[in-house]
Design a protein around this nucleic acid. Sequence first.
DNA 1: GTCTATATGGGGATAGAC
DNA 2: GTCTATCCCCATATAGAC
Lengths: 227, 227
Amino acid sequence: MLFHIDAHRGRKVAGRIRQKNEQLILSAAEEEFARHGYKGATVNGIAQRAGLPKANVHYYFNSKLELYAAVLSGIIELWDGTLNELHADDDPAAVLPAYIAAKMRFSREYPLASRIFAIEMINGAPNLEGYFNDEYREWFRGRTEVFRAWAEQGKIVPIDPAHLIFLLWSSTQHYADFACQINASLGKESLTEQDYEAATRTLTQVVLRGIGVDVPRPVAGTVAREA
Amino acid sequence: MLFHIDAHRGRKVAGRIRQKNEQLILSAAEEEFARHGYKGATVNGIAQRAGLPKANVHYYFNSKLELYAAVLSGIIELWDGTLNELHADDDPAAVLPAYIAAKMRFSREYPLASRIFAIEMINGAPNLEGYFNDEYREWFRGRTEVFRAWAEQGKIVPIDPAHLIFLLWSSTQHYADFACQINASLGKESLTEQDYEAATRTLTQVVLRGIGVDVPRPVAGTVAREA
DNA sequence: GTCTATATGGGGATAGAC
DNA sequence: GTCTATCCCCATATAGAC
């Protein structure tokens, strides 16, 4: 609780340094938490990865738990949203492929976020007390209604919407969370752009066809059968 | 390294006690590792759950890591096998529903095993060095060949077999690993037998239809529309 | 074989110099 | 704002009595 003397110039510089360091720490923490879980990650490891002494981590984030909470809240912000793009009057043949592609892109771009979230779920979400509340349940019910409406309008076959959503979530997140097993199965160090395209295509194909929607022609620009 | 005096009766009793205690510890360890991860679980917690003093855990399993390895190896034994039931000359319409049902049953009966395996994967399988070797890769390739053969015989539509397998794995394991989120979404404490039936049915329906196999009528004995 | 008491190390957190 | 040195707790592991 110190106040600085030279407010105008001092604060600007300090603010910049603070912002930079906090970001450094958050990125390092994300990596460590994803690799070792909450308990397994150490403040020391996070500090080293960030290139800072351990005490600085405690300076910016009072405790390890507080730091974890900050990482987690950043992830939650990223999380929601995508599924909200689907509406009852949409054409599933158009919006579902977009949704699957978005989720796959997410798995590829933010694998660490996906893994931290997954570990949190597996452990019973001990740090997300407030997240799964009545509001969440209502939101989910609203999302299932979209699929139910599609079925009623004959756009898709009658299907249990909740379990279909779970299928979409699991199959896409799998590419981030189980990357290790996937790489081993395919005999690669990591997946290429083409692998992700193949995964997205396969998933889209099975799901759309699976709910009775005609599979659209590949989007212009996608490799079709050159390989 | 003590030897007992009354060998014949003593050994039998000792063996029985040992077996019972080792089983108790393994079960307790499974629970703790699944809830808190490797580092997060404590030998104390495991001992308490098993109803034994901490030192006894070290007596039966020399170190925490050794105990974890024992738990993990039990899981790996359970793991493989199911996918081996599929053969090129099978009828996918018959064996795929059985496979999906078996995986779903596994998720329901051994959720802890599934979660420990999942955490291990997310962390990059640090304790499964030997597992993902050339033999594994070969095994996986063999499994993909089954689907390729089905496609060639016109039993299913042409599809990327590897990604289809990932879809089967992810969507079924999800019910064990993300039970927390699933329960919250459905507004339940835990899923009922009916929920699992609905999940299995939905999954089977989407996948079979998705790869161009006629969805079979519900198996005799299954509740069809009473609810 | 069982259990209490303890050694040892590592990790989170803080004091206090700069 | 930054960083070194240190405190203290807790977890693994073991020694040794019973």
